[in-house]
Design a protein around this nucleic acid. Structure first.
Lengths: 254, 254
DNA sequence: TAGTGTTTTCGCCTCTCCCGAATACCAGTT
DNA sequence: AACTGGTATTCGGGAGAGGCGAAAACACTA
């Protein structure tokens, strides 16, 4: 569930990456803090962080080190790397307008869901800051929509790698139950998330399939449970499925 | 001008970062290609790249390794880290609309200018993809606007570090000439770039000062030389200066 | 089946990274 | 000014990790 036992990973590289992660989480940190947190000698932390600084990946502001803007370029690169992502962005925005709910386009990577584009709902201050967020596939509408269209073997691999951790009381944490749900999703054409990730929040997700039949990603809309009910909800689902299909088409034609 | 001689940088970390850079430039690469390019053994390249993969920073697509979406999160983080950047984004868009030219908000880091926000001009397909781009300070309008409001000592440090490389025939590559120009820019209130970075392209840049008097960044508009002339141009400059001032105000009040 | 180019595994040697101790630095506090 | 607790930073030496090279696995073509 956690880590590599016998592998030949580079220890140095791994700690460097850990430091980068830490600098993001803490929004900057000093040498001592890093050392304490990662359980390494302060001098070691110092060498790492100064290496990152000399390579211009990190900036020093007073006594604390921060992630530098070099990551802006890298982030922007991966976002625009695939043409399809551009299309997805457009339709995410359309979805947000038509549904008046917050909308997300998610893809799978390393067994997790990653938010590639997000758009706020009508009342939405909620925004961009969640781009790049990693979520579980089994506890989200888009995640389940994606899993439903993967080979079962691959799904099993993912479960082995990341597990089925409970996020709320509703989270599916049983493999068989998950596979049943996935079958249902395939039939129905869309996936639901009934407070399985965050209590009080529901979502609907639709898969976006590539021309090869493989799954490219998923579109989803989310909102507070009381605004995701009844006939209003049925309309929402229709809008979602329509736009997902448009996106599929747009990808297939490009 | 180039590199560290005696320093204690971590060699392993440095090659890891080099590989990341390479994967961006080439948009993915195989083990052999990496090894050849960085002049290391293929087996070494392999260990690096698999380490990055196991840490989920890199994905393997067939035989080539690509940067993964983890960089999306990091990039998004540094973009939204400073509130002020949010304000700057808004005014960059406003500038683009009012000037009908492509507009950029730039900040300094490690002696280079980094595009933090960009907006296309009227005819603009040209867009986002340049976010995160690093440019020289001495050969760009925004860069010179920034330099003009830095302590002379700091400017000299930067020149020592990155030099004054010629990008076109017009590029200032003499220290004294640069300082003269910076003085002029301070008086005038804005900076010009007359085909000093790219031939055929001119730009105007205005500094954006923080409440402390230090320079926060610069706004600039750019376009083909023939559309950056005469009274049309004067109007452009006025618009630019007005918006830069609004941005300053907005920052000071927050 | 042989042949080219690749990726990947693995043992070994060396060089590099990590630690610890010493030093420098910085703000308060007395 | 001297003392104190907290930092960051420098530096030498030892252990262990990273890099190489050889060889094996693999993929495609002919």
């Amino acid at each position: 569930m956690t880590e590599n036992a016998n592998d030949r990973s580079l220890k140095t590289t791994v700690t460097t990456l850990r430091i980068i992660e830490l600098l993001r989480e803490r929004d900057g940190a000093g040498v001592t803090e890093i050392a304490r947190e990662l359980d390494i000698a302060p001098s070691t932390a110092h060498t790492h962080v100064t290496t990152l600084e000399s390579q211009e990946y990190v900036v020093k502001e007073g006594e604390t080190y921060h992630l530098g803007l070099r990551f802006l370029g890298l982030g922007n690169f991966v976002r625009t790397r695939k043409r399809k992502f551009g299309k997805a962005e457009h339709y995410t925005n359309v979805l947000s307008e038509e549904s008046e709910r917050r909308s997300i386009f998610t893809v799978e990577e390393h067994g997790r869901g990653v938010y590639v584009h997000t758009a706020p709902g009508k009342h939405g201050v909620w925004t961009q800051s969640t781009v790049g967020k990693r979520v579980y596939l089994h506890s989200t509408a888009s995640g389940k929509a994606i899993l439903a269209h993967m080979p079962a073997e691959r799904v099993r691999e993912i479960i082995d790698r990341v597990g089925l951790p409970k996020e709320t009381e509703q989270t599916i944490h049983d493999e068989e139950a998950l596979f049943d749900e996935l079958a249902e999703i395939r039939e129905r054409g869309y996936a639901l998330n009934v407070e399985e990730q965050i209590s009080g929040v529901r979502a609907v997700g639709a898969p976006v399939l590539g021309p090869d039949g493989g799954v490219f990603g998923a579109l989803s809309v989310a909102g507070p449970s009381n605004r995701m009910k009844g006939e209003q909800f049925d309309r929402l689902t229709e809008v979602l499925l329509g736009i997902a299909e448009e996106l599929e088409l747009s990808i297939a034609l490009s």
